[in-house]
Design a protein around this nucleic acid. Structure first.
Lengths: 151, 151
DNA sequence: TTAAACTTGACAAAAATAGTAGGATATGAT
DNA sequence: ATCATATCCTACTATTTTTGTCAAGTTTAA
């Protein structure tokens, strides 16, 4: 059970975005790509998804780029991961398509619900703003070289 | 981020095993396979892993099968998932091989640690014994047909 | 001795992941 | 105007992981 690079890179990207667009300017893919050492093409794919999910907005044309669609305090890590991964559930016991007809008799479901809730609790209570602040304190992202970080 | 069938089937298998081996008799793969609707070959692979990880023990020869290596109260869901999935971490920020040289400067790590701890907390506090008891109450596994359940 | 059951290793189809490539479109600056 | 810069979009591909299957062997109770 591993979070894919979509979620891992995407979180780094949006933190980078928040850190570097404070004075109202849009941040372009290329600059994020260089700071975070993620290929432009792939990053584009991820940021585009963040846009269609309403987390960032784009400014087209020369001098354009991306900026947060709403204040960093209003964007949780869960929002970002769900936008990129589709769902962050470890096991989906969907009510659809006859899966789990015996739902009320299934004990493993008790476990999966528990796990899913634990994960959601963990990611929904951390905002991008908190991470940006933490990052400032540590002078990490966008300042120190993070090329060696795989996550 | 999805738990694979290894973990999902494996948990069902070990619960089935616990349910059906109470009177000291070993439970054979074939019977689990039939009750849980998982192919014998695949199940064999999973149960073998559970054995090498010390969660179940095998009884060879005719009339043999598998039984729990220790009381169901002493086996947590986390034990089972770790045995089968290797690691249940959503993101591994291993200290190995130069990954995360900037570990102390990396803010995303704060998130991943949080998520990993949440997951572990969820799976390590539920035992197979609890699920077996719950199952008895619901008369679910091993009694009611669970073929339709994908998890 | 024989059949039931475990043991092991090799193999393979299918799905998901992790990207690439290339062109179209929009827009600010010269 | 047109050019440079940037987003936007579709399609494609290589790699890895998942999800099994298969066949040949070993062990042991009856």
């Amino acid at each position: 059970m591993k979070l894919s690079t979509k979620g891992r890179y995407g979180l780094r990207a949006i933190i980078d975005l928040a850190l570097n667009s404070e004075n109202g300017n849009a941040v372009c893919i290329q600059s994020i790509s260089e700071r975070q050492n993620i290929s432009e093409s792939y990053l584009e794919q991820l940021v585009r998804k963040l846009r269609t999910e309403g987390l960032v907005k784009s400014v087209r044309g020369a001098g354009g780029g991306y900026e947060l669609a709403r204040p960093a305090e209003k964007i949780s890590v869960g929002d970002v991961l769900r936008a990129l991964e589709g769902s962050i559930e470890a096991v989906s016991c969907g009510d659809d398509e006859g899966c789990c007809d015996q739902a009320d008799l299934c004990v493993t479901r008790l476990v999966w619900d528990r796990v899913n809730k634990a994960i959601e609790g963990a990611v929904d209570t951390v905002t991008i703003a908190q991470l940006v602040e933490e990052s400032r304190k540590k002078q990490c992202m966008g300042k120190v070289d993070t090329k060696s970080c795989a996550n």
